[in-house]
């Protein structure tokens, strides 16, 4: 199951936009009439969602970027699962 997800390419759902908001000093996900404030780890992940990288590719990049952090893969998979469930992203 997990291996399967690692090979998939996440994309933002149509109409969803990820951007940095200077006034809130954080990244947000904007969608019709709504906004989700993202924490640092969610924004690190979504910054790498570009319609080309696989989930596995994002995991590898973040492991390289934060070598001292433990359980990065589990955290990313958990986030992807929630984001898919809430229809923020789609896996192809």
């Amino acid at each position: 199951m997990n291996e399967n997800i690692l090979l998939k390419v996440p994309t933002l759902r149509r109409g969803y936009r990820f951007q940095f908001e200077p006034a809130q000093d954080c990244h947000v996900l904007l969608y019709p009439e709504g906004m989700i404030k993202l924490n640092d780890s969610a924004s690190e992940i979504l910054q790498r969602v570009d319609g080309a990288r696989t989930v596995g590719g994002i995991v590898a990049q973040l492991q390289a970027r934060f070598p001292e952090a433990e359980g990065i893969e589990e955290d990313i998979l958990a986030f992807v699962e929630v984001a898919v469930e809430r229809f923020w992203i789609e896996l192809r």
């Binding site: 006034a23 809130q24 904007l30």
Partner: peptide, 9 residues
């Protein structure tokens, strides 16, 4: 926008 408005209807 400068004050932080993000959604515009």
């Amino acid at each position: 926008r400068a004050l932080g408005a993000a959604q515009l209807g």
